[in-house]
C-alpha cells in the first residue's frame, strides 16, 4: 500500500474539517477502503486517511423518540448479538450476523457497510486498470464485458465530471441496506437526516449522497408496530466470506401493508413496490407468494449472464413470504 498520512479523529468536528480537505478519505472499519487502497483503484490516491473509530459516542444502541437508534460505529458483530436489536428489529440482527466472515463482522461498522464502494470487478481491478464511468471515464466495461454480478434493473445514469451522461451497471451489495430500506430507516449525518431511500447515489466515486466532510453518525429505525413481522434472506455462491449476489428483506406490518426491499440487483437498494401492492391486505397463499416473487422482478432488464438473479429473487421472495 502506498504511503498516506493518518489522523485518529477525536471528534466529528475534527473529522469533518479534515475530510473537507481535498485528498482525504474517511475510514471506519477499513474493510472496504484498505482493499481499495492496496489495489490502488482510485484516480487520485489519498493524502490523508481519517480514522473515525476514535470518535466517541457513535457506537451505541438505544431506543429514543420512537426510534431504534444505531450508532454508525456499531460493529456488525455487536449488532447481531444485541438483545434490543434482536427483539425490536430481528431482521437487522440477522443481516448483521451473515455479513462477510466472523472476524470481519467484529470490525465492520454499520456506517461503513452502508457507505462502501461497489464491488464491480472492473471498478476494483488492480491499478485503476479500467478507466470506467464510475471513475469519470467514458464507459462502463460491464456492458460488453462479464456482467454476471451486475444490475438486472439497468444502469445508474448520472452526469460525469465532464458533464456528459454516464451509465454504470454496478450493484449495491451492502448487507444491511435492504433491511434498513424495508424498515424505512433514516440516516443521520453531521449535516442532516436522510430517508434511506434517498441515501444511495451513484455519482462519480460515491456510493451515497454524502457531501465532502459529511459523516454518518446514526441510523434511526422507526420502532416497528407491535405484531410486525420481518425476515432477511441472502443468497451467495459461497457460504462465508462472500457478498450476497441477491439479498432481500420483507416487513409485514400489522395493518397488512408490506415493505419488500432488494439488494444486489440494481445500482441502489430497491423497493419491490409492485410486489408490495400485490400483497397488500391479502391473506398469504402459495399462489400469492409465487405471484409476489414474479412481481418483485417486474421491469427487470437482465443480460444473458445475470438473468439467474431474477430466478433467485422470485424464489427467495416466495420462500421468505411462506416462512413468515
Amino acid at each position: 500500500m502506498r504511503p498516506f498520512n493518518h489522523l485518529n479523529a477525536a471528534s466529528l468536528e475534527e473529522a469533518s474539517a479534515a475530510l473537507k480537505q481535498p485528498g482525504s478519505l474517511a475510514m471506519a472499519g477499513g474493510g472496504d477502503l484498505l482493499g481499495a487502497l492496496k489495489d490502488d483503484i482510485f484516480e487520485t490516491y489519498p493524502k490523508l486517511v481519517v480514522n473515525l473509530k476514535t470518535i466517541p459516542g457513535l457506537d451505541g444502541v438505544e431506543v429514543k423518540d420512537g426510534f431504534l437508534c444505531l450508532g454508525a460505529l456499531c460493529m456488525l458483530g455487536d449488532l447481531s448479538r444485541n438483545e434490543t436489536v434482536q427483539s425490536l428489529a430481528p431482521a437487522v440482527a440477522e443481516a448483521a450476523a451473515k455479513c462477510a466472515s466472523p472476524a470481519l463482522r467484529e470490525n465492520t461498522t454499520l456506517g461503513g457497510n452502508l457507505c462502501q464502494l461497489p464491488r464491480c470487478w472492473y471498478f476494483r481491478k488492480l491499478g485503476n486498470h479500467f478507466d470506467c464511468a464510475r471513475k469519470g471515464g467514458g464507459k462502463c466495461f460491464a456492458f460488453n464485458g462479464d456482467n454476471r454480478y451486475h444490475s438486472v434493473f439497468g444502469p445508474a445514469v448520472f452526469n460525469g465530471c465532464d458533464g456528459a451522461k454516464k451509465a454504470c451497471l454496478a450493484v449495491n451489495q451492502a448487507e444491511l441496506a435492504p433491511v434498513l430500506l424495508a424498515l424505512e430507516a433514516q440516516i443521520v449525518t453531521t449535516a442532516r437526516t436522510i430517508p434511506i431511500g434517498e441515501f444511495f447515489d451513484c455519482g462519480v466515486l460515491r456510493s451515497t449522497v454524502l457531501e465532502p466532510g459529511e459523516i454518518v453518525t446514526e441510523v434511526r429505525i422507526p420502532l416497528p408496530e407491535k405484531g410486525t413481522k420481518m425476515t432477511y434472506r441472502r443468497f451467495s455462491f459461497r457460504k462465508s466470506i462472500d457478498f450476497p449476489v441477491v439479498n432481500l428483506a420483507l416487513v409485514q406490518k400489522p395493518g397488512g401493508e408490506w415493505r419488500i426491499a432488494l439488494g444486489g440487483v440494481a445500482p441502489t437498494p430497491r423497493r419491490a413496490e409492485a410486489a408490495e401492492t400485490l400483497l397488500a391486505g391479502k391473506a398469504l397463499t402459495p399462489e400469492l407468494a409465487e405471484a409476489a416473487g414474479k412481481a418483485a422482478v417486474q421491469g427487470a432488464k437482465p443480460t444473458e449472464a445475470n438473468a439467474y438473479k431474477l430466478q433467485l429473487v422470485k424464489t427467495l421472495v416466495k420462500r421468505a413470504l411462506l416462512s413468515l
Binding site: M27, G30, G31, L34, G35, N51, N107, I241
Partner: peptide, 25 residues
C-alpha cells in the same frame, strides 16, 4: 485483503484481521 483469516489476531478481545487493520488505528 481480509479474505482468508490467516493473519487473525485478537484486538481488544475480538478476532481481527491484522492485514486489514491499520496499525495507526
Amino acid at each position: 485483503r481480509g479474505q482468508c483469516g490467516s493473519c487473525t489476531v485478537i484486538l481488544d478481545g475480538k478476532p481481527t484481521l491484522s492485514c486489514n487493520t491499520l496499525a495507526a488505528d
